[in-house]
Design a binder for these strands. Sequence first.
RNA 1: GUGGGCGUAGCUCAGGUGGUAGAGCCCUGGAUUGUUGUUCCAGUUGUCACGGGUUCGAAUCCCGUCGUCCACCCCA
Length: 431
Amino acid sequence: MRTAEVAGVGEFCGQEVLLKGWVYNIRSSGKILFILVRDGTGTIQCIVEKASAGGELFDAASGLQQESSIEIRGTVSEDSRAPGGYELQVTGLDVIQIAEDYPITPKEHGMNFLMDHRHLWLRSSRQHAILKIRAGLIRFIREFFDNRGFICVDTPIFTPSACEGTTTLFETDYFGDKAYLTQSGQLYNEANAAAFRKVYCFGPTFRAEKSKTRRHLIEFWMVEPEVAFAELDDIIQLGEDFIVEIVGRSLESYRDLLTDVLERDLAPLERVQPPFPRISYNDAADILKKRETGFVHGGDFGGTDETVLSEGYDRPFFVHRFPAAIKAFYMQPDPEDESLTLSVDLLAPEGYGEIIGGGQRIHDLELLKRRVGEHGLPEKAFEWYLDLRRYGTFPHSGFGLGLERTLAYICGIKHIRETIPYPRLLNRLSP
RNA sequence: GUGGGCGUAGCUCAGGUGGUAGAGCCCUGGAUUGUUGUUCCAGUUGUCACGGGUUCGAAUCCCGUCGUCCACCCCA
C-alpha cells in the first residue's frame, strides 16, 4: 500500500493509501465518524462507517482524542461534502498514541495561555498558515537578491562593538572579554560590498529594547542588502522593486491561506504596485503640523504620525532625508542641507509602519572619523570600519527589512508575536 | 519604564449594594448515516493569584506584592 501525504492525496483517487498524522478534530453522527486528520502537509476528513468498517475498527476510531497520533488506511475519494474536496474511506487504523487532555481545544483561549503553549499552538491552522507563508517569504527574499547577482555573505552574531546605541545591546561573556549580540550586519555588509559589490545578509538580530508593543521583538530576522556605488535614489528604487516582488509573490502563492485561514483583505496588497510615493521628511513634517498630532519638527515619527501620513496613500511609501540628529552616525549628509541625511524609511499602510530603514553611508574618512567622535563611539573599535574609507573608498547604500513586520503586514495580523515560531518578548523567553 | 484593564474549575468566562461558588467547553456514558468549531440528554472538576487589613462573616471592600493584557516612548 502506498504511503501518501495529505497535500498530494488527490493523485491517489480511488486507491487505498496509508496516511500518518494526528487527529485534528473528531465528530460523530450516530453510525458514522468524521475524523479530521492533519499530517503537517494538510488536513483530510476520514470517514468511518459502522456498517462497512465493522465494530472493532469503529470502536477504535471512536476512542481517538484530539492530537492522537495514528496510522490510518483507506480509499481516497473526491467528495464535495468534505473540506478540501477529498476524503478517506477508512479501512484500517493503528493508534500510535492516544493523546489525553490536549490543552488547546477548538474553543477560545487567552493569549497568555496560547503563548505558554506555543510549542503546541504551532499545530493549529492559523499558526500553521502564518509560518508557511513566512517560509515562502524567506524564499522570495533570497530569490529576489540571488536572481539579481547579489552574493549572500553572512555577518557575525557575536560582535565586539555596537553599531547603534549600546543600551539596546545584549552583552555576553566571550572568554573574559565582552561581546555583544548583533543588532545589524550593516558594518560588515559594507566591507563585504567592497569585496563583492552587491551583497546581502539575512539572519537573526537582537535588541534589548525595553519596549513591549505589538511591533517589537527582542529577537527578529532582518535582511540587509548593501550595494557598492549605489546612491540614495538607487537604493530607494531597489527597495521598491523588492517590496513589489515579495508582496506579489506572496499573494500569488498563498492567496488561499491569506483569504480562507487568515481572512486577509487582499485589496491593499493588490495595490502594492510601482511607483511608491516618495516624500521628504520636511514635507511629511508639514503635513503633520497641520494635523496636530503632537509631532515636533526634528524628532522621529510616533505611531499616530505614521498613521496620519499613511492615510494619504493607498500603498507603501518612502520618507527620505531625515535629520542627522535622529539617525545613525554613518549616514551621508544631504549635500543640499547638511543637517539632513541621505536616509530613507519605507512605511507600510494599514498601521503596519516602518518595515524598511536605510540610506547612503558616509564614504569620506575624515567626516566619518568626526561622526564616530561626535557619537561618543570608541574609534579604536571602528578602525577596521574606517579602513574601508582608507583603502578604495566608494559611495554605497543599503537598507534593512524586518522580516516579521513584513510578514505581519502581508498576513494582516495585529501582533508580531505570531510571525516567528518562538517569539522572544520583553517578558517571555519560553518555550 | 509610564498609564489603564484583568487574575474565580484543565480552558473561556459569569458571580448589583459582603452571607464559604456557577455556566459553556474539555473529559466519561448514552442518542442521532454526512458531520463542517455537529446537536441533544446525564455525570466528574475549585488554596476564588499571593500576603496583610476592615468585619460576626470577604471571590466581593481597603493596602501591598506578583503575574498578565492593551496603549505610549523607541526602533526593523
